[in-house]
Structure formats: structure tokens, C-alpha cells
Nucleic acid binder design. Structure first.
Length: 287
DNA sequence: AAGAGGCCCTGATAGC
DNA sequence: TGCTATCAGGGCCTCT
């Protein structure tokens, strides 16, 4: 699923294409997403300009005039496609995430601008749209979420205060959006590998030095992933759709049974289910 | 009240 | 080939 870096990459490309564009039409084919698409969704958007494309954590926020906001979460399988209608009447498909061609199935929502349209496709329908009439309500929507790893608020004092007495394992904390928001299952494993910390280690047993590492590598992994264009995004410029022209440079994720990438470490990457989510880690260098 | 587990949903893949 | 079981990157709700 798209984690913070993927959503940020999507935000940037989206922003370039739909900034200051006016919504001409909205099509809702299936309103039964994770949450039902609100009744006023279409009228909320039509004739409005996109004045900014924002993001918090894994949420995209389309800023509209008059302090209105349209929130979009991609869930596990949500993808955004931009279809451009150029002068030659060719349809150029720009896929921002995960798919070589525009899927016909599961394209639940279309937001249509003058020469371009945004298509939301989501097989599992874990994603959702929500609308907010002012920034107060939007803020309230995010109130329960912890800071992003990239924010200054995500510092030693904050992490220590929350984690130092908790009995929950650190992997679950990295996935807990109330503690820190934006990290998902892939990057959680990657971050802990770089920290040399076992995913099963209870938070209260972590030392100050380890808290510092968690903060440092959380930032580093996410920033690096954004820089690389979202490492979980498949690069599907190849219309033939052949797999293999995208690379995952993961150190542990989906590397079960393979050698640890750390120099001189003889460890083997393990896969283990921790709270129903797959976790990958080196059995030797992560303590 | 913290933490574990179940559930929403479809599709891809593995195993028989 | 065709069935079934398992798993997939998230988040919210409930139960203990």
C-alpha cells in the first residue's frame, strides 16, 4: 500500500497536473468505498478550482476555494490515474501508481477537468473520499494522528515520553498512526533493520540511543524513498506491462530466506507474523 | 486503558 | 484445469 513517500510522490505529480484546474464534472460509479462517498460529493467539487494539493501522512488533500477540502486516502489498493486529452485527440495515460494500463474494473470515481481527468481505481475499496467545509473540521479529522516522522515534533522527548513505559513491541508502534503517522508495513521493517532493533522488542526495553536511531532512520528511510520516487511504486512506463522493470531495493522486506545485506553479517532474513502483519528482519544483527 | 485481534474487500498466487 | 487456502503495502472498531 502507499505509505507516506508514495502518497507524497503522487501528490507532487498530481499537483503539477491539476493545480488551478477547474472541476467540470464528477462521476461516482461506486460510492461504497471504505466510507460511503458523501451525498454532496459531486456538488462539492463541480465548478471548483484546485488551489492546492496537500498531504498529511497517507492522506491527500485537495484544497478548494472557500476553505473547502476534499480528502482522499488510497487504502491498500487505491491508485490514481491521470488521463490527458491532448489536441490530437490521443489519450495519453499517465499512471501514477501500480498499473500499466487504465483498469476498466474498479474505477469508482472520476474527477474531470477541461483537458485532463483523474480516475480513482481501487479493487479492495479500502480507500475513501471525505469532504470538509472548513479547516477546523479537517484539523479535527487528523486530531488523533501522531506527528509525521519528518516533523520536528517527532523528537527524542516525544518518543521517549510515549514509548518508555509501554509493553507493546516496537514494530507495532511504528505502524500505530496515533504514535507516528505515515509509516506502513514495508518501511516499518526497513527502518528497524537499519536501527538493528528486533521488531518484537518491547518499547520499554529500548535505550535512549535506540530511540534516537528510530527517529533518525524513520526520517532517513522516508526521505530516501520520496527521493527515489516511492520505492514501492512500480515504474510502468512500459505499456506491455512486463514486470521486472521496477526494482525494490528493500533490505529486508520480502527477502525471507535471503542473506542479510549488512556487510559481514551472516544472518538470514526471517519472516514472522507480528499482530497479523508480516514482518521481515535479520535474525542476527537485529537485537 | 493498553494492547491484541477481527473485519471491511477483491485479486494474485500457491498448493493440491 | 479447477478448486481452496492464504496473503496483500491500512485503519477502525471491539473485546479483554
Amino acid at each position: 500500500m502507499p505509505e507516506l513517500p508514495e502518497v507524497e510522490v503522487i501528490r507532487r505529480s498530481l499537483s503539477k497536473k491539476i493545480y488551478q484546474k477547474k472541476v467540470k464534472k464528477v462521476i461516482v460509479r461506486n460510492k461504497n468505498l471504505r466510507f460511503k462517498i458523501p451525498r454532496n460529493f459531486i456538488s462539492f467539487l463541480v465548478n471548483q478550482k484546485i488551489i492546492k494539493v496537500d498531504r498529511f501522512s497517507k492522506y491527500l488533500i485537495l484544497n478548494l476555494p472557500n476553505d473547502h477540502y476534499c480528502l482522499l486516502h488510497l487504502g491498500m489498493s487505491g491508485t490514481i490515474h491521470l488521463i490527458q486529452n491532448n489536441k490530437k485527440n490521443n489519450i495519453t495515460n499517465t499512471s501514477f501508481y501500480n498499473s500499466p494500463i487504465l483498469p476498466k474494473k474498479h474505477s469508482h470515481v472520476e474527477i474531470i477537468f477541461e483537458k485532463i481527468k483523474l480516475v480513482y481505481n481501487d479493487p479492495r475499496r479500502f480507500g475513501f473520499f471525505q469532504v470538509f467545509n472548513n479547516s477546523k473540521l479537517l484539523k479535527k479529522r487528523f486530531a488523533h494522528l501522531g506527528p509525521e516522522p519528518l516533523q520536528k515534533k517527532f523528537n527524542l522527548k516525544y518518543v521517549y515520553t510515549i514509548l518508555s513505559k509501554k509493553d507493546k513491541n516496537i514494530k507495532n508502534f511504528l505502524l500505530d498512526q496515533n504514535f507516528v503517522s505515515g509509516i506502513g508495513n514495508i518501511y516499518a521493517s526497513e527502518i528497524l533493520f537499519l536501527c538493528k532493533i528486533s521488531p518484537e522488542k518491547k518499547a520499554r526495553f529500548l535505550k535512549k540511543k535506540e530511540f534516537k536511531k528510530i527517529i533518525f532512520y524513520s526520517k532517513k528511510v522516508l526521505l530516501n524513498a520520496i527521493k527515489k520516487g516511492g520505492s514501492t511504486i512500480r515504474n510502468f512506463k512500459n505499456i506491455s506491462g512486463k514486470i521486472g522493470d521496477f526494482q525494490k531495493n528493500f533490505k529486508v522486506y520480502q527477502r525471507e530466506g535471503l542473506n542479510c545485506k549488512r556487510i559481514k553479517c551472516k544472518g538470514i532474513i526471517q519472516k514472522k507474523f507480528i499482530s497479523n502483519r508480516s514482518s521481515f528482519f535479520c535474525n542476527t544483527c537485529q537485537k
